[in-house]
Simulated assay, not measured.
Amino acid sequence: MIGGSQRMVRRPIAVGLSTASVYPENTEAAFRYAADLGYDGVELMVWAESVSQDIGAVAALVRKYAIPVQAVHAPCLLISQRVWGSDPVEKLERSVRTAETLGATTVVVHPPFRWQRKYAEGFAEQVVDLESKSSVVVAVENMFPMRADSFFGGKDKSAERLRKRGGPGAALSAFSPSYDPTDSDHAHYTLDLSHTATAGMDALELASRMGKGLEHLHLADGRGASMDEHLIPGHGSQPCAELCQQLAASEFSGQAVIEINTQNARTRRERSSMLAQALAFAREHLARSAVAGK
């Protein structure tokens, strides 16, 4: 622009709520919390609850609460191995079609388990093929190993052990080729900050390796315990604030989703308070300001 400067405002980073964050309450409860607290949308966790598997029922919740589905989490957890059948190839494809129908931009999926040999052999190619035929991004999530110290001592002791030795110690990956999706050079990734804590990974370094492929953030926290914790961001050891600020200052065009564990909430009011605190953290540290350009 001649004779002056142009102000370019980057799109604010949307903050959604994982429906898993309200467990043991149901999918509709997640939509209700999201609407009441001011979330931008939800990430639909597809699992045993029948509503989460029913596109029509979820679409009705979108209309009822005026809350969009930002992302769909494929049913790839151990507890959802039989949801939408037993073929993980078909389940991932169905997840993408579900995202398209609901207007979601992203499908979150874990790396294949080692015992899913056929699926693992063709996983990278399937992700490429699905993305070539759809505007939906398939963002592969970082996971964590099964640590030997999960079998003795509590969370506090295992977190202290990880801190002292600088890593998870004796551990076994259940994922192929590993729990680090950058080992397979996918186009798009989900970064989960609770998983980096359990894996003893450097979250900032992993984000750097993901680079422009970092499309989706599961914003939570952890202290390094042997079991996945999904704490409220700011309540653990992960660089949640620093990472959020880096994303806000970058050209990050994806979205953040609060995925915390609220199972210990004694009342709905307490659960709502936890979800509100996590949202406030995200809003503060993901805030963007105008960027000067020419």
Rank of each mutant, 00 (worst) to 15 (best):
A104Y: 08
L77K: 13
E215P: 00
E125Y: 04
R117V: 15
A57S: 15
T267S: 15
G169S: 06
R10M: 10
D149L: 01
G169F: 02
R97F: 03
T105M: 05
T27A: 11
S272I: 00
A256K: 10
E121P: 00
A124V: 14
F281A: 07
Q238Y: 03
S173T: 15
W47R: 13
L61S: 09
F144W: 15
E121H: 06
V51H: 05
M1T: 12
I13T: 12
I13V: 15
H188D: 08
R271N: 01
F123M: 08
A282Y: 06
T262G: 05
F281N: 04
F144M: 01
V291H: 02
L92A: 10
A256N: 08
Y23C: 00
V108M: 10
G213I: 11
A203M: 09
R10C: 01
G41W: 03
Q126F: 00
N261I: 01
F175K: 02
S184M: 13
E121W: 06
G211S: 09
Y65G: 06
A171P: 06
P233I: 06
S95Y: 09
A197P: 13
A225C: 13
E131P: 11
L231M: 12
A249T: 09
R7S: 01
L231A: 08
L206K: 00
R268S: 13
G213V: 09
A170N: 04
V136C: 08
T27M: 02
M227C: 09
L78T: 09
A241L: 01
C240T: 11
T196F: 07
G4C: 08
A199G: 01
S176H: 12
A265C: 15
G153F: 04
A124H: 14
L204C: 11
T19C: 03
G85A: 03
E229K: 07
R288M: 02
D192V: 08
L231I: 10
G41M: 00
D40G: 15
H186M: 14
K294Q: 02
L231T: 04
G3C: 00
G293E: 14
Q245R: 15
G56N: 14
L172A: 12
D129Q: 14
A248L: 10
A99E: 03
G153A: 09
H110S: 07
R283S: 04
E160V: 05
R32W: 07
D192R: 01
K164E: 13
H188W: 12
L243S: 09
S95P: 12
K212D: 14
C240W: 03
R7W: 07
S289W: 10
L286P: 01
E93K: 15
L243T: 12
P111M: 03
M1A: 12
E270R: 10
G293L: 13
A225S: 15
R11T: 10
